[in-house]
Amino acid sequence: MTQPAEQGQASRTDGPKMVDVFSDVDIDTALATNPAGVAIAAMADEDPAILTLTADLGNVLNEFRERHPDRYIELGIAETNSISVAAGLATCGFKPYVYSMSPFGMLKCAEQIRTDWAYNHLPVRLVGRLTGLAMGLFGTSHHAVEDISVARAITGMTVVAPADAQSAVSLLRATATMAGPVYVRIAEDASPVYDEPPVYEFGRWQRLRDGADIALIGHGMGVGLAVRAAEQLAGSGIEAQVWDAAYLKPHDADAVLAAAATGRIVTIEDHNVIGGLTSIVAETLGRAGVAARLGSVAVPDEDIEVGVPADLYEYYGINVAGVVARAAELTGRL
């Protein structure tokens, strides 16, 4: 992509554009566009211990702020402070939810999260939005493609990645009773998978489709891609199993082994190929001594291009066509 003009993108006016997920609508009560904001506001109605904290990212919490103004704590553009302040509040019996952009909340504050939250077993939640390449055009500073790798290497962290808005509601509700710190990785570009909040068991993945030829395992936006790719593959006579890997830590080793019974696994994630779901599956297979072909649809470990997310996902093959192509490659069919 060193010569973008050749790709006809420099002067394009009708192609994909950035979507403003923080547009200044007064109160975004739409589940589809603001699942975490809606879910946390509803949870706070029932649990007076729930607080929200942000570092200048409060507009997605307008509903919460309107209903519970005293329980919203704005820290200004000071992410590290917001993480440690939340730890202090948690020692007083509160349940703080820190709302942040993942490149800053999870990556910039990894040490505060480890030392102040995880080391002390405190029940604090980081709700990270704008994960993966969702802030594509804003540049590398705004990409969060290492966050899962960092989060799951921290002892005591629970890491969940909702597949869509309904999944986000379900997983956020589940955090209400989780011990220790949790990272909730919200995907912006997820196509709907569930009609209602699914019932997840702690640490377990959901099998969304059966199939004996290959297994497609995704988290976040990768789940919707897997579902749609499986439909296409079925049209070509390839029956694909589909898994929603909602829990990245702890992960579902039994599900990995069930997927491996097909002999072929494709992992799909909006994350660096190192340290995320691809690594989780590979580590699990190796430890169990189970052989399977493993393909990945993920962000490569290289300098990432900058552009609107739809273009980036196409460029890196993190889309339905990319999943189908990788499945075809592994099955040797199509």
Binding site: L51, D70, R71, I73, T80, N81, I83, S84, V85, A86, A87, G88, L89, A90, T91, C92, G93, F94, P96, E111, Q112, T115, D116, Y119, N120
Partner: peptide
């Protein structure tokens, strides 16, 4: 509160003080 990483605990103290107020 645990410590060892310099610079964190005034923030944690802010959280505890806020918690006292709340």
């Amino acid at each position: 509160f645990s410590s060892g990483s310099l610079g964190h605990n005034l923030s944690v103290g802010v959280g505890m003080a806020l918690g006292g107020r709340l």
